[in-house]
Design a protein around this nucleic acid. Structure first.
Lengths: 154, 154
DNA sequence: TTCGATGCAAATAGTTTGCATTCTA
DNA sequence: TAGAATGCAAACTATTTGCATCGAA
């Protein structure tokens, strides 16, 4: 069984920086691997393995889905990539970075990236209350957003 | 597509109370439905549909998996049941009750039910910080628990 | 007696694995 | 040229759906 949770993030600002990080980890740089990275950097938010395999709707060349999964796993293991479950759909992948927290509204289904300061304060609250060093990067905070709270209930 | 999130909880202390709630909602009380409820009340924590179909390891008679799923969906719709995703495995179901929050340690994989007061304070913190009315019942807080924080890192 | 619920089988979504082939280092 | 990574097919897990039959109200 593969581990559910991964190691510390490795920040790389560009695909090329990520490729250097791959080499530094003794990993080979193949066309397929390069493409996964390009897709992740080109996407404007977390994307599914399937999105990547389909070349982000044709913006990039398509690739084999199982290779995409294998590469995502490798990249995640190295710490270059993170994955989130924002709901019941497929897991979503993104380049690892300082922003590592999500909230999703169960009413409007919008998903919101948490601001670093909010994230830090939330973590502090969690540590104080339950003695936990919390991440909100793997599963989001689920609830009702401000806009939906203001509206008449459904 | 079925809704990811459900309605308000209906608390029933016993299988019989739950059965009354079913009748009150115009639902029929079949043997299969009764069994799902019995399993949920007999379990000492959240269980998978498969666990229920297998009669909790033989403690109860087995039932058909698809019926179990259908019944869980119905029971959840009525508000008698909740489901959580505590990790990458199957969804886990439990009788709806006042306790509606979870935390899971990514190191020791233990899962912890949140105390009502901690839950309330956490929700208050989340509301203050991101204007969100948070539930921690569908996805847990993921992080490192106190015990694992104390130990030398893996 | 009706129509909601069941049980079986088959379909589906997401993800993983086996294996011969390809290509990076 | 060694062995890491690929691409295809097949397996697998979790869940859903179609449909003829059954049984609760």
């Amino acid at each position: 069984m593969t581990a559910s949770f991964h190691g510390p993030p490795v920040e790389a600002a560009t695909p090329n920086a990520a490729i250097s990080a791959l080499r530094a980890n003794g990993l080979r740089v193949s066309a397929a691997r390069r493409l996964v990275l390009e897709a992740l950097y080109a996407a404007d938010g977390p994307v599914s393995a399937d999105d990547i395999a389909k070349g982000l709707n044709g913006r990039l060349p398509p690739s084999d889905l199982s290779s995409v999964y294998r590469n995502l796993e490798t990249l995640e293991h190295v710490g270059l990539v993170d994955h989130v479950h924002l709901g019941h759909g497929p897991g979503l992948y993104a380049v690892a970075g300082p922003q590592r927290g999500w909230a999703v509204c169960e009413t409007c289904e919008r998903h919101i990236a948490l601001e670093p300061q909010a994230l830090e304060k939330l973590s502090a609250a969690v540590r104080r209350l339950i003695g936990f060093d919390a991440r909100f990067s793997h599963f989001p905070i689920v609830g009702r957003c401000g806009d939906c709270l203001a509206e008449p209930a459904t």
